[in-house]
Amino acid sequence: MFEEPYRWVEAVSNRREYLDEQLKAGSPVLALPCREGIFLLSASSGTQKVYEIYDRIAMGAIGHPADVERLRNVILDMAHVEGFNRSPSDVTARRLIQFGLAPMVKTAFEEIAHAPFIIRLLIAELGPADAPVLYTLNYDGVFKEEHRALLLAPNEEAAERSAAIMKTLSKKADRPMAELFEEAFKAWGLAECEANKLEAHLKETLKERRIEAVLLSSAIPGPSKYHELSKDEIADLTQSWSAD
């Protein structure tokens, strides 16, 4: 059936449409370099969206929970075996993406007789000298490195709605997270709804969903630099929306 090149290209194209359709309802994940390190933000109704991967590495994902889980386990295993056999400083986001996840995801995407990974993910790392390093990986295996604020959006329209605030946030990496939180939450919200519904949407999100807010910061004591903000910490940051 796929032996003719044209059919294969067509099948891959169909698969792209299928995956875009599957991902469009996903809740965005935002990664924001800030004074403390890197701030990650999302909201979930059930399955967690932001995860600790290794001492200085976190992951955020949009996609099918079972696929997220499979890939999360792959990099967890890679990171911990590597960190044990060599050193924690040999575990880097680039190695995990370039030699671990990307080839695996691309192979699954192009083997059209099998199911692809329904996933789009983001890896955040406190790199050398605590410089923020961010990677995105698409369902087709394409990955990209970034060093500024980044939004993992479910589709292009969502990304466009948040683009202006994301551009502003990218220029504020020297500010503390608490100062950037309001803008970050708005950027995240715009990726879920139109601007005229933003206020109501954010209030509803706070009521109905679990806010996932994580800070990767070298100021956190001990080897693990991953700190998931507690309910109280989030309540302090979101007082203005929760007041009424």
Binding site: Q48, I53, Y54, D55, N73, H80, G83, P223, S224
Partner: peptide, 15 residues
Amino acid sequence: RVLSHTFKYYRRSQL
């Protein structure tokens, strides 16, 4: 070293 990795691997994989 094994013990330290055991605890953190468990926490991260089993949430």
